[in-house]
Amino acid sequence: MFMIRPSNSSLKVYVYSGVVDMRKQIDGQAALVETTMEVNPFSKRLVVFTNKRRDKLKILAWDKNGFLVWYERLEKQRFLRLKGDHNRVLSIKDLNLYLDGYDINRFKPHEPLKIEKVA
């Protein structure tokens, strides 16, 4: 199986929490990023969009001199709704788990400890 996935772990992944008509082209999606999310669409980041049925997903990214778009259409399953606001940031690892169908909303790591001295 041939699959192209984002792998640069230094990239930020922003999630657009609303639904998007997948007929919307690159310029329309970039405008959503700029106006609704108040994020620069020309910076080094990925922005994830899903449609109302959550069977389609697009990822928009700027690459030096033009936009890239990843597009995935599921035949039977659905992408889970990601919780959070328009500026929720995911890691590349979480994005790839999400693309594989995992519910990353339920993945919750241990809370960080703030220890000031040894017992």
Rank of each mutant, 00 (worst) to 15 (best):
I26K: 01
T50F: 02
R53A: 10
S17I: 06
E34D: 12
K44S: 15
K93V: 13
M3I: 12
K52A: 06
T50V: 14
K114L: 13
L11Q: 13
N87Q: 15
V89S: 06
D94M: 15
F107M: 11
G18W: 00
V19S: 13
L95K: 02
K24F: 00
P112Q: 12
N65V: 05
S7Q: 13
T35L: 11
M37C: 14
K56N: 12
E75F: 04
S17K: 06
S91M: 11
K76A: 06
N65K: 09
I115W: 03
K83R: 14
S91W: 10
V13K: 11
I4D: 07
L99H: 01
Y14G: 01
P6Q: 05
V19H: 06
H86V: 06
K93N: 12
S7I: 12
L57F: 02
G101L: 04
R45E: 09
N87C: 14
G84F: 07
L74F: 02
E116A: 12
K76E: 03
K76R: 04
V15I: 14
R5L: 15
R78W: 01
V89F: 02
D27V: 00
Y16M: 00
R106C: 12
K52Q: 06
D55A: 05
E111P: 05
R45I: 10
L113T: 10
V20N: 00
G84P: 02
R78M: 10
S17M: 07
L68P: 01
S10Q: 14
P41G: 08
K114A: 09
I92N: 11
A119M: 07
L46E: 08
K12H: 14
I4F: 03
M1Y: 03
Y14D: 01
I26T: 15
M3C: 11
L32N: 06
L68S: 13
L57Q: 01
T50Q: 05
M22S: 03
Y102S: 10
G66K: 09
G28M: 00
P41C: 07
R5I: 08
N8P: 03
S43Y: 06
M1C: 08
L46F: 07
N96R: 10
L74P: 01
Y102M: 14
K114Q: 12
I4Q: 08
H110S: 15
Q29I: 11
S43L: 07
A30N: 08
V13D: 03
H110A: 15
T50R: 06
K83I: 07
D85I: 02
D55L: 04
A119H: 07
E75N: 04
V47C: 15
V33Q: 01
R88F: 06
V48A: 10
N105A: 07
R73I: 01
L68H: 09
G66Y: 05
R73M: 01
F2T: 14
K93H: 12
F107D: 08
K117E: 13
T50E: 05
